[in-house]
């Protein structure tokens, strides 16, 4: 009930004579709203920071991520020269975390990108064409849905053999069905909107309609969903490496590092937890950013 009331209160606002100043463009107003959201700004800054230390790892550390020292094994946090301590073979953990982020982020973002392209295409196709095209695509996706995502990923990895490429491919396949479903739902919704019908009624071709009316309205929700998938993807890909199905040692990768430091949990619990903290923080940031994007993209919440 109270929702309806809020509605009344808001609806009366635009009824007044409109002011003369032209409104900013859609993406510009999304940007303005993002800038007014402190949480999104903070998590975006944190993600930029994480990107900087991983891509620019040589700038923030001089150590070699592969070179260990038997004498410096499992040093605690705050050790001179190793401010985040060292791992079980005496490699500098800060350096390993920085370099490890490269593979972790790659293994997390690439599958989402694959599913965004493939799943987005299939979903828009299914949603816009409807009929038997829709039935074939959506029923096929339902088959994949029958398996829990981590099981499916493990099964595909098991089939393809372990390694980074295969773990990326496996996760890409895992994310395609949910992406198709989201894309299909929003496309179906926007297809039946009156303005799409109006465009059809004025003789606009299907391709033009998809380009001008459907894509613009579908892309937003899909991008938001993809951002939230990255947070899941980080955890899943780390999980695969943890199980030994993804990146192989001695490559630095957060999931793999978590696995190898697992034995040291009673010796250096804080050090052992650090890769996990990185996974958690990064995943959380992507999740919060997707929330911020979602509300900034909502046209009706303008003001």
């Amino acid at each position: 009930m109270s929702d309806a009331t809020i509605d009344t209160a808001q609806r009366v606002l635009p009824a007044a004579d409109a002011p003369a100043a032209p409104a900013p463009g859609y993406w510009k107003s999304v940007g303005q709203r993002l800038l007014r959201d402190p949480v999104t700004i903070i998590v975006t800054l944190m993600l930029i920071g994480i990107l900087f230390i991983t891509l620019g790892a040589p700038l923030v550390t001089n150590a070699d991520p592969y070179a260990g020292s038997v004498l410096a094994r499992l040093k605690p946090i705050g050790t001179p020269g190793h401010w985040l301590g060292t791992d079980e073979t005496g490699r500098d953990l800060w350096t390993r975390l920085c370099y490890g982020g490269r593979l972790s982020l790659l293994a997390a973002i690439l599958p989402v990108t694959i599913s965004l392209v493939v799943g987005g295409f299939l979903g828009i196709l299914a949603g816009y064409s409807g009929g038997w095209v829709n039935t074939i695509i959506m029923r096929t996706m339902d088959v994949f849905y029958a398996f829990p995502s981590i099981l499916l990923a493990v099964a595909i990895c098991g089939m393809l053999g372990n390694g980074l490429t295969n773990s990326i491919l496996a996760l890409g396949v895992v994310f395609i069905p949910p992406m198709v479903r989201v894309a299909e739902t929003v496309t179906t919704q926007s297809r039946s909107l009156d303005f799409v019908e109006a465009a059809r009624a004025s003789g606009t071709t299907t391709l033009q309609i998809i380009r001008h009316h459907v894509l613009a309205n579908v892309l937003g929700p899909i991008l938001v969903y993809a951002t939230s998938l990255i947070s899941v993807s980080i955890i899943l890909s780390a999980g695969l490496s943890f199980l030994g199905l993804g990146v192989t040692p001695p490559e630095p990768e957060w999931g793999l590092m978590l696995n190898s430091l697992r034995q040291a949990i009673y010796v250096q619990p804080y050090v052992a937890a650090l890769p996990g903290v990185m996974i958690f923080v990064t995943s959380m940031c992507f999740n919060l950013m997707s929330d911020g994007l979602r509300s900034a993209m909502d046209v009706r919440l303008n003001k």
């Binding site: 009930m1 109270s2 309806a4 009331t5 009344t8 209160a9 609806r11 009824a15």
Partner: peptide
């Protein structure tokens, strides 16, 4: 007409308005 406050009045009588009202 819409926005005249007629529905809001009713909801006020019922105590159904949101907290910020």
């Amino acid at each position: 007409e819409s926005g005249s406050g007629k529905s809001v009045s009713l909801k006020a009588l019922m105590g159904l308005l949101p907290g910020y009202a």
